[in-house]
């Protein structure tokens, strides 16, 4: 919203804060003993990612993230966890005590380390700049309000029109699939 923000130390600070938040809660997701706690942690991590989106100037995506993930997908998750009894701790079979934690650490270190190193070795000239701002375009009613939603919408319905249709088809198939899965239960009961 405030064009000067992205070049300020506040911007970097916000990115790092949201990033730490995301990584911290993300690690809770994979370590929490009860699935419902993992789900809560995931909600938190998703909010942090939404915050990152917002800081990076993708406001529409931030809103969609919260709406779709937190309001939709995570409610579904919690619903399913309730159905399958998420209160109980999951019985994690461990051939050797602590091997799971060890494996997780190794995985995080190897994959994360290589990605981080790769990112670090990238060109330092990479600089993030805000997308086109309303200040630059005189079309918006109010100066200072980003046109991100409009721009994403335009892109979505012009350049990405075909993928958009394909995605809607995918969603339709998913709906049909979910309905079939839910219906299957009643068939079982009848016989």
């Amino acid at each position: 919203m405030y064009p000067d923000l992205q070049s300020s130390p506040w911007f970097l600070g916000a990115v790092i804060a949201f990033g730490l938040w995301a990584v911290a809660t993300g690690s809770v997701v994979i370590t929490a003993q009860r699935p419902v706690h993992a789900a809560l942690a995931l909600v938190s991590a998703l909010m942090a990612v939404a915050g990152l989106f917002a800081v990076l100037g993708a406001e529409f995506l931030a809103g969609a993230q919260v709406l779709v993930y937190v309001g939709g997908v995570m409610v579904l998750f919690v619903f399913v966890i309730m159905v399958v009894g998420g209160g109980r701790k999951t019985a994690e079979v461990e051939p050797v005590s602590g091997v799971r934690f060890l494996a997780a650490t190794v995985v995080v270190l190897v994959i994360g380390g290589s990605i981080v190193l790769g990112a670090r070795s990238a060109q330092p000239a990479f600089e993030l700049r805000p997308g086109p701002r309303a200040a630059a375009s005189k079309d918006a009613v109010r100066a200072g309000v980003s046109r991100n939603t409009e721009d994403v919408g335009t892109d979505l319905y012009t350049r990405a029109a075909l993928p958009f249709e394909v995605a809607s088809l995918l969603l339709l198939v998913a709906i049909v699939g979910a309905v079939v899965l839910a219906k299957g239960r009643r068939v079982e009961q009848d016989d």
């Binding site: 911007f11 970097l12 990115v15 990033g19 993300g26 699935p35 981080v116 670090r120 990479f126």
Partner: peptide, 28 residues
């Protein structure tokens, strides 16, 4: 700046992979 975001996403990705590999609860 880009590297900061990439680092964050890399760590999240690694956490996700670790979770897939180590957890046994299909919902998790």
């Amino acid at each position: 700046m880009l590297t900061t975001v990439l680092t964050i996403s890399g760590l999240m990705f690694a956490l996700g992979v670790a979770g897939v590999l180590t957890r046994r609860n299909i919902i998790v």
